[in-house]
Write a protein that binds this DNA or RNA. Sequence first.
DNA 1: GGACCTAGATGAAAGGTTTCATCCAGTCGA
DNA 2: TCGACTGGATGAAACCTTTCATCTAGGTCC
Lengths: 337, 337
Amino acid sequence: MTIRAASVKDVAARAGVSLGTVSNVLNRPDRVSVQTKARVEAAMAELGFVRNESARQLRAGRSSALAYVMLDGSNPFFADVAHGIEQAAEAQDLSLFTCNSNNRAERETVYLNRLEEQRVQGILITPVNPDAEALDELPRRGTPVVIVDRTRGGNTHCSVAVDDVLGGELAARHLIELGHRHIAYIGGPDPLGQVRDRRRGAHKALADAGLGPEHLVDIGTEALTVDEGRKAGERLVGRPASSRPTAAFCANDLLALGLLQQCVALRMSIPDDLAIVGYDDIDFAAAAAVPLTSVRQPRRELGRRAAELLLAEATDPQHEHEQVVFTPELVVRGSTR
Amino acid sequence: MTIRAASVKDVAARAGVSLGTVSNVLNRPDRVSVQTKARVEAAMAELGFVRNESARQLRAGRSSALAYVMLDGSNPFFADVAHGIEQAAEAQDLSLFTCNSNNRAERETVYLNRLEEQRVQGILITPVNPDAEALDELPRRGTPVVIVDRTRGGNTHCSVAVDDVLGGELAARHLIELGHRHIAYIGGPDPLGQVRDRRRGAHKALADAGLGPEHLVDIGTEALTVDEGRKAGERLVGRPASSRPTAAFCANDLLALGLLQQCVALRMSIPDDLAIVGYDDIDFAAAAAVPLTSVRQPRRELGRRAAELLLAEATDPQHEHEQVVFTPELVVRGSTR
DNA sequence: GGACCTAGATGAAAGGTTTCATCCAGTCGA
DNA sequence: TCGACTGGATGAAACCTTTCATCTAGGTCC
């Protein structure tokens, strides 16, 4: 183990050239004669030279990394979004740092601060609270921020999201077309814009079919988790058969999977006793014992596009903020047919 | 937007103090009088001062971050390991960078190089190939490396893993005790040490019960994925009923979930027609329609312990490499009873 | 009143890389 | 033979923070 890592200076000494030449070998190899280059490279190999990225960054003023602050590391949806971001970053030879706020505003703040201190090129974030002030300050101080899978009032940021109202509409329309007239909407907590938008879409589908809002019964949950899905299932099945919905639309797939499990455990048959539609179309939705009908969001594409917007903003100073909205798609599977 | 971020020098000028004093406010606030401190802090706020982490690192020689290079971002098992690492890192006020090699050696190499250039405190990795040379070079050059969820010959690294032979034994013994005498082992590709170890454990359980190895039939897969699990299910059910196993032990939960789905689709009853045991006990195993019996690995704990070993190695120069092996635990659920 | 302390403030130096203006030694043309 | 040019090589300066030896002013004690 070397006591101190070799620096360009050491390499220069070993190769018998100036340190500027070593730097040229690294950054503009064409300006260096082949012999010199060979000598320098040999010296690097002998000394096990490794570039010091901190020093590069200090000099350059910015790092060559992006960051994604994801909302919930245990939801595969976000892992897929991250993967899309990574692909875009890779294409530009940038690194991606992934942080996980785990739905806690306090962790999110810590990460945002650190990332700003790192001088990352920019930050992609699915925020705990899209209206948090910190999201304004960062761009004001020079670190671009793109909001992923959320929207935000005003035209202060670029954002990439999916049309949740339309998604809700697709899901509900599908159930209505299958003849269901008593549909449960399972989701919460309500302050989440997505939970509300998807419900709005469902109401729209009802209205379009000439049905009143009473055909959709709300079953609130405290979070969008498998466990909450199970609990919702219990409550649902607890209802007297006459007033029990024949179909359920869940605000995400985790809820739907929990619901599905609870229903199977309680000996209900899916989709005969209860048709289920989820949201997100995570891989585990297709992998469920009764494959889940779900509203697919273009997860990778979401990440990819967000990264592109970020890079555009990072390179072009007078850039116009853009709100990209993707279109969701219904994927019909066994849980509704 | 400021043309250039404010530096300590700017803050010092604004507050009418020397730059050393600003640094003291940041790093040793007790050595600064309250009035001065207040003045400096006001100046910082006015200028929107943000520490430059590159410069700190350059000065310090090392960054204050760990990194985890995970093998497969789409397997929730690794997300949980990462979460454990994060907890340990958080406790020490370190950042964690998570990278995802996605099972590709070439991505892994890229990330390792970058992380070394970043001078991270150390690297945790679940390697594509535990015997890769690069894993030796990093520690030789001063960046400690801890191997997670894999083991490696020799005593060259710290590593944290779970006793896979024992896990296989637990799974198979459980099935044997339930009366199964014709058990499928589903897993592959074979070069994976874990796939082999878990099979070895299963054979051991058979032997202990006085049963020959012919009671375990091998069904190879090309990867440990849901899709491969489905395919294995097709092959399994395709067998004539007389020679069809009555139970299956899968090398991980993704395979088991795919198998479960295929069986349900083909109208087999779980566990009556086929009992299934998975491995890893990811959350989705418990959430399956027929909750999956699985061998639980202490995922968070795995990550946490690995991070601790890494920090120990990073701080203590003459540190002894340690191979931690955790004990797995069988979690019995509906898929076997 | 002088010696001694102490809390607080100072600023130069170091850390590794990149850039850029400068320099050097050949080569070519006239 | 001289001047102009060129491909290469050079090294000082800048990037920003932290540390540490040094300095100052005010207070305490005899």
